[in-house]
């Protein structure tokens, strides 16, 4: 019996969400008195032994380069075999694009009860109850997993990374055959040089109040000063002022950064569904009646074109 944490990586680097998943998996293992291990499919350039600081003693690796690309069908077979050979009883993923592709397949393959979007450690006082976000962030459900093997995917930014002492983890190579993929990837378009939205600690977002794409400079300047990612509301993406991958909300991307700054966004319920799990929300809007103020922690009623450049200046001062 052990806890096995799936390590997600791209371009040779382990994703930040995996550090959270590792910390979470290590805490679950500690709670149950089980060993915590990590599973890496493919290869990375990062130092794997350094993952020991998140509380895992062993990294199980299937070092076949063809696994660097995600094919959920192929990877599920490898993960299921790794679970069997390591005797893992709890498998942890991040609830990101990779986890959404894999966790359900792996759960079905193992006949394991599945909770996606977990936000807290399980309550094991009676059963195995995992709290997850439901109703698009408007409530939580406490879900009891009743099967012997359990699969959990952790909402990004829900569990704080815990880095302990630098005890290096050992790497154990697993010899598992990898099937050929039936998916032929023809193009990968990645946004270069920007903080990915789902991994960002701070997100600066603009809405229709900014009047046009030519005015996005003030949003980008503020984001730059904060090392933040930029986002936008649905009407902005629909009007092609900003690319669709920046659209946060119910139909776009759901995010939960530590700080979300909404500029010129009224705060429709569909937009809130994408951002209401943010730890702190700042709203800047010239309309004091904007519904977003009800969901905000801090607000400024004022003209974005006046307030935002000043805010950028003040941030620069404090960051110096």
């Amino acid at each position: 019996m052990s806890v096995l944490v799936y390590i997600d990586h791209s371009d040779g680097h382990i994703k930040k969400s995996s550090f959270e998943a590792l910390s979470y998996g290590a805490a679950v293992a500690k709670q149950l008195g089980l060993p915590a291990e990590a599973l890496l499919l493919g290869t990375v350039t990062d130092d794997l032994s350094a993952l020991g600081k998140y509380g895992v003693a062993t990294i199980q690796q299937v070092n076949n380069d063809s696994l660097n690309h995600l094919d959920a069908q192929v990877q599920t077979k490898v993960i299921a075999e790794a679970v069997q050979s390591t005797g893992a009883t709890i498998v942890v993923f991040s609830h990101n694009q990779t986890g959404k592709a894999l966790a359900p397949r792996v759960a079905a393959s193992l006949k394991a009860g599945l909770v996606t979007g977990a936000v807290a450690l399980p309550d094991t006082s009676s059963g195995f109850v995992v709290k997850k976000s439901v109703f698009s962030g408007k409530a939580f459900a406490n879900v009891n997993i009743t099967s012997p093997v359990k699969v959990i995917s952790l909402n990004p930014n829900s569990y704080k990374t815990v880095a302990g002492d630098d005890k290096p983890a050992s790497v154990n190579l697993l010899n598992i055959a990898v099937e050929d993929s039936r998916v032929k990837v023809t193009a990968v378009n990645k946004v270069k040089g920007e903080v990915p939205l789902t991994e960002a600690d701070i997100v600066v977002s603009g809405g229709r109040g900014l009047k046009g794409p030519e005015n996005w400079g003030i949003v980008e300047d503020l984001a730059h000063a904060l090392h933040a990612a930029t986002a936008c509301s649905r009407p902005v993406a629909d009007s092609h002022w900003r690319p669709h991958h920046e659209h946060v909300g119910q139909t776009g991307i759901q995010i939960a950064p530590n700080l979300y700054i909404a500029i010129g966004i009224s705060g429709a319920i569909q937009h809130l569904a994408g951002v209401n799990r943010s730890k702190h929300i700042v709203v800047i809007n010239k309309d004091p009646e904007a519904p977003f103020f009800k969901a905000a922690d801090y607000g400024i009623v004022g003209d974005a074109f006046d307030v935002v450049p000043k805010l950028t200046e003040e941030i620069k001062k404090i960051r110096q």
Binding site: K111, L114, A139, F140, A141, N142, N144, T146, S147
Partner: peptide, 19 residues
């Protein structure tokens, strides 16, 4: 393989601080 034991609502926001 799972059952929902209970639901809960998030704690109410303290209210916006206007600056």
């Amino acid at each position: 393989l799972t059952t929902i034991a209970s639901y809960e609502l998030p704690p109410a926001k303290a209210g916006v601080k206007l600056i």
